[in-house]
Nucleic acid binder design. Structure first.
Length: 178
DNA sequence: TGCCTGATGTTCT
DNA sequence: GAACATCAGGCAC
């Protein structure tokens, strides 16, 4: 599958489980780091826990753009987290990548949204990046079987805690909270 | 196992 | 000026 925009131009709660098992390929310092996505969360404009909830701002602008681009935000004074923009343009939806399973020798930890950004060298410089292109590409694999996926409520939010928009690959040791 | 806290800067009110 | 889609370390149990 190569057409990111077509595959991801769907509601975030459809795209989030769809992204499990897909790969992120990061080229940095002459090396290529690969990771398989094993944990995701969906956010959209109707959702009180989402950055896009209160409408388009300079920070969230990317979320309202076309699907298949990267939205990076900075939080807690020291961490970056990365999201894949989903949905139709001007919809303000995205999927947070919470954990990766390293497919080659990524030395730093990749469990947790901030840790995986650090491991892959992702910071605000990549905000708005097209994930079809180097140096950070998203490779869509075949969707996982539903029986291999678990759905729960999201982690680390204070609003809309009852919305079950977190998905992870059952049994993966890179998912912290089962 | 589970709660509390510190480190730290951007965004929005 | 408060809130924050985090994480690791400390300490009580």
């Amino acid at each position: 599958v190569t057409d990111l925009a077509a595959e991801l131009g769907v509601p975030a709660e459809i795209a989030a489980p769809r992204l499990l098992g897909c790969e992120l390929v990061r080229e940095i310092d002459g090396r290529t780091l690969r990771g398989r996505i094993v944990e995701t969360e969906a956010y959209d404009q109707t959702d009180a826990a989402s950055h896009s909830y209160k409408g388009r701002t300079p920070r969230t602008d990317i979320m309202f753009g076309p699907a298949g681009f990267l939205y990076v935000y900075f939080t807690y004074g020291m961490h970056y987290c990365c999201n894949v923009v989903t949905g139709r343009e001007s919809e303000g939806s995205a999927v947070l990548i919470r954990a990766l399973e390293p497919l080659n020798d990524i030395s730093a930890g990749t469990n947790g949204p901030a840790r995986l950004c650090k491991a892959l060298g992702i910071d605000k410089g990549l905000n708005g990046h097209d994930l079809a292109r180097s140096p950070l590409r998203l490779i869509l694999n075949e969707p996982l079987d539903k029986k291999d996926i678990m759905q729960t409520s999201r982690v680390g939010i204070s609003r809309a805690q009852d919305v079950p928009w977190r998905w992870y690959v059952k049994g993966s040791r890179f998912v912290s909270r089962m």
